[in-house]
């Protein structure tokens, strides 16, 4: 029980900084707040690399959050415009969802290509094995041959 409570508290500790980053901004509607939250969660901090700008305390994340807020609420820009503005300055690196283009083609579709390849191999292997088994079936001995084998076996026994 004690462990449970401690881990519960710790999990809250992980949640609060993100909430705190939003609390410094004021929103007219719940929808705006929600939109801001999801936007800063998919933007990546260039300084601290494995954090989004919602979680990061780095100066640059603070600047990026401020800018996102200003562009969104004061200038009425769309999410795409805000992301494009940041990408122009910091590169695709700031997006946790990279765009689909010729550099990221493999990243987006590589796994599906590999899956297709694996399925193809599976189909080929199964088909071959089935063919081998059927071929074996066709090679079954005829009644005459069976009889001949029996004879041979008996002969060998008698010769012992």
């Amino acid at each position: 029980m004690k462990t449970f409570l401690v881990s519960l508290l710790l999990s809250f500790a992980c949640v609060f900084p993100a909430a705190a980053a939003i609390d410094t901004y004021e929103f007219d509607t719940k929808a705006d707040q929600e939109r801001f939250r999801s936007l800063i969660e998919e933007l990546r901090c260039p300084k601290c690399q494995n954090q989004n700008i919602a979680d990061s305390d780095a100066e640059i994340s603070l600047d990026m959050r401020d800018l996102t807020y200003r562009m969104m609420i004061e200038d009425g820009k769309t999410n795409d415009e805000i992301v494009a503005y940041l990408v122009d300055r910091y590169g695709d690196f700031v997006r946790y969802k990279p765009p689909v283009d010729k550099r990221t083609f493999l990243l987006w579709y590589g796994p599906f290509a590999l899956l297709a390849l694996a399925l193809l191999i599976l189909v080929v292997v199964v088909a071959r094995r089935r063919k081998a088994v059927t071929a074996l079936g066709e090679n079954e001995l005829s009644a005459a041959e069976q009889q001949r084998i029996q004879q041979l076996i008996e002969q060998t026994r008698e010769n012992k």
Binding site: P46, K47, E59, I60, D63, L67, R89, Y90
Partner: peptide, 12 residues
């Protein structure tokens, strides 16, 4: 205020 820095993509 780091405005030019921001336009330059400076992160540190």
């Amino acid at each position: 205020k780091g405005t030019l820095g921001f336009d330059l993509g400076v992160y540190g």
